[in-house]
Design a protein around this nucleic acid. Structure first.
Lengths: 212, 212
DNA sequence: CGACTTCTTGAGCGAGCGTTCTAGAATGAC
DNA sequence: GTCATTCTAGAACGCTCGCTCAAGAAGTCG
């Protein structure tokens, strides 16, 4: 009962997982086939299923591992470390503009890209992805609520709308990065997006005529 | 050489196309199988291939038809009809908040949903979808350029960034609608998004310390 | 040394994919 | 009527999918 018994694994599990991350990041959940995975990971299907379960479980582990990586966790870190909500969201947008187009890895955010995928047949995976999306919005909302209670935002600020707004912008930045937007363009988008901060759902700029 | 020869078509082509639109709108390109299509359209595969070509051609026709429909053309109409760029984009956002969550049809924008799909295996379809996305940004950019030349915007306004910004927000609104966001939430998002207008890439709100 | 356990290999499973084929049915032209 | 043409119905094509299985290889145990 000392060392583990049986034939030892013949490949580096972490390296194989890294290859899976890269592949899922680039091509999404359903866009990546098991045979592509086994080829990229350098193993045979039997080994994949023995080491990771099935494709769904592997994807879940990929998302989890990515979320703990420096690139994947930058939002959570900003929300936790910045003293003000304004500082946190400004930093998130600024860093997203740096990270998303970085050629060192596939463009955009793995989580957002995977979660944005609308072609998912598998109902369980679809629910999983929807949870990923809404979890992000929920975290934003919570941070904004704290800002309201702390007095940084007016007590009647619409945290729902602000959270939805930032989620939308960030997701859009990820997609724009995938479509080839440069770091400079994304930085500008980030700067403009923070312009909404001064509004907080208070100002009413309805104008331009009553079409519809 | 008078009437068309051969056995006449036994189904309503427009109605069948409408069913295909509904299906592609809900489930995306790759999420919709030909057998699902034939069932929803009430025809057999042979009839589908005879009338529409193949799945790709059918999808292209779906996108085109949707783009000419009132719901699909609201952006182009706003850009063409509103005298100011501000009015056009404000109207686009306002109408998107109305249309995207409308339960009369699948949530969000067919074009954006389909184009956002990252799981597309077929390289040609992927290129087609990318073009759809970038065409939108391009149209925005052009309208903003006109606004610069007309004096509505400062001549050195960053039309690239503004166009990318609005594209990102609108895409995010479509996705939020698909995730169940209400008309009210989207209307708030739209209002906030227009707050960026006053900036036009001039203001610099870099602050919050030099983390990163 | 076996006995036991675990991993690897490679073939192959059933199901679904997009698509095509064959037969026959329904029309206009002559 | 007969022919050419066009559509319909249904079976089936080849392919890929995610996944499994049987056999053997490579270790730790006693």
């Amino acid at each position: 009962m000392t060392g583990m018994r049986g034939r030892p694994r013949g490949f580096d599990r972490d390296a194989a997982l890294g290859a899976a991350i890269e592949l899922f990041w680039r091509r999404g959940y359903e866009g990546t086939s098991v045979s592509e995975l086994t080829e990229a990971m350098g193993i045979r299907p039997g080994s994949l299923y023995a080491a990771f379960g099935d494709k769904r479980a592997l994807f879940a582990e990929v998302v989890d591992t990515y979320g703990r990586s420096p690139v994947g966790a930058f939002m959570a870190e900003a929300l936790a470390e910045e003293p003000t909500a304004f500082g946190a969201f400004a930093r998130i947008l600024r860093e997203a503009a740096d990270i998303y187009p970085d050629p060192a890895h596939p463009a955009g955010c793995l989580t957002i890209s995977a979660a944005t995928n609308v072609a998912v047949q598998d109902a369980e995976v679809e629910a999983f992805l929807r949870e990923l999306r809404n979890a992000n919005v929920k975290v934003f909302r919570e941070r904004l609520r704290v800002a309201c209670e702390g007095g940084e935002l007016p007590g009647d600020a619409d945290v729902n709308a602000l959270a939805g707004y930032f989620a939308a912008v960030i997701q859009g930045m990820s997609q724009r990065a995938r479509d080839g937007a440069t770091r400079e363009e994304l930085a500008q988008v980030a700067r403009m997006a923070m312009g909404a901060w001064s509004q907080c759902g208070l100002t009413d700029l309805e104008e331009g005529g009553g079409v519809r």
